[in-house]
Design a binder for these strands. Structure first.
Length: 187
DNA sequence: CCCTGATTCGC
DNA sequence: GCGAATCAGG
C-alpha cells in the first residue's frame, strides 16, 4: 500500500493526536506498526518521548534479553536435553527431504496402537484423519525419533541474510549433494 | 507475556 | 523510500 498524500495527512494527524504507531497502523490499514514508525521518521516528525538515554548510542551487540526473546519467537534450539543439544548443529545447511523420506509406506506405518518401544514417534498427517500415523522407523538411542526425523526436528534456524553474507561461501559441490536449499516444508 | 518508539539496512 | 527485524525499554 502506497503512501499517498491522503494517507500521509492522516498519519500526521493521528500521530499529532498522540496515537501509538500500532493504533495508527490499525486505522490506516495495509501497513504494519513498523511501517508507520519508519514513515514517521522519514517525515521527520518523530521525537516522541522515549527515555532520553535510550536513544543515545545503542550497542550493536544483541543483549541476552533480546536474544532470549528472539529465540522464543523464532526457532527452538534444544536446551534442556543434552542428547538433543548434541544433535543441534548450528552450522548445518538446511536440507530438503526427498519424497522417499517423507512418505512412509503403509506397511511401515505405526499407529498409536502399533507403536513399539523402538518406533520413531514422528507424527505424520492430521491427527483427526484416519490415515494419521507415526514414522515407525527405528529410533536413535535416547531419542524419540529416527535419525532422519531427529535431524528434521532440530534443524537450525535459517540464518538471516545479513549474517549469512559474512559467513563462508557455500561450496557448490557440497551444497548440491546435501540440499537444494529451500524453505523448510512442514512435513 | 503484552506493549512502546528507534534504528539498521536489504530491497 | 520502504519496512521487517532488531533493539531497548515499560
Amino acid at each position: 500500500m502506497a503512501w499517498n498524500d491522503e494517507r500521509v495527512e492522516l498519519l500526521k494527524k493521528l500521530w499529532s493526536e498522540g496515537l501509538s504507531a500500532s493504533q495508527i497502523a490499525g486505522r490506516l490499514g495495509g501497513v504494519t506498526r513498523n511501517a508507520v514508525i519508519g514513515k514517521v521518521h522519514r517525515l521527520g516528525l518523530s521525537g516522541r518521548a522515549t527515555t532520553s538515554r535510550m536513544k543515545s548510542h545503542r550497542p550493536r551487540t544483541r543483549t541476552a534479553a533480546n536474544a532470549r526473546r528472539v529465540q522464543q519467537k523464532t526457532r527452538f534450539a534444544p536446551q534442556g536435553n543434552p542428547a538433543l543439544r548434541a544433535l543441534y548443529q548450528p552450522e548445518a545447511e538446511p536440507f530438503t527431504p526427498s519424497v522417499e523420506e517423507l512418505v512412509i509406506p503403509p506397511k511401515e506405518r505405526r499407529t498409536i496402537q502399533t507403536l513399539t518401544e523402538c518406533s520413531c514417534r514422528w507424527p505424520i498427517g492430521d491427527p483427526q484423519a484416519a490415515d494419521f500415523h507415526f514414522c515407525g522407523k527405528t529410533k536413535v538411542a535416547g531419542l524419540p525419533y529416527c535419525e532422519f526425523h531427529a535431524r528434521r526436528a532440530f534443524q537450525p534456524p535459517q540464518p538471516r541474510r545479513r549474517e549469512r553474507e559474512i559467513q563462508e561461501p557455500r561450496i557448490p559441490a557440497l551444497a548440491a549433494q546435501g540440499s537444494e536449499d529451500k524453505e523448510s516444508a512442514d512435513v
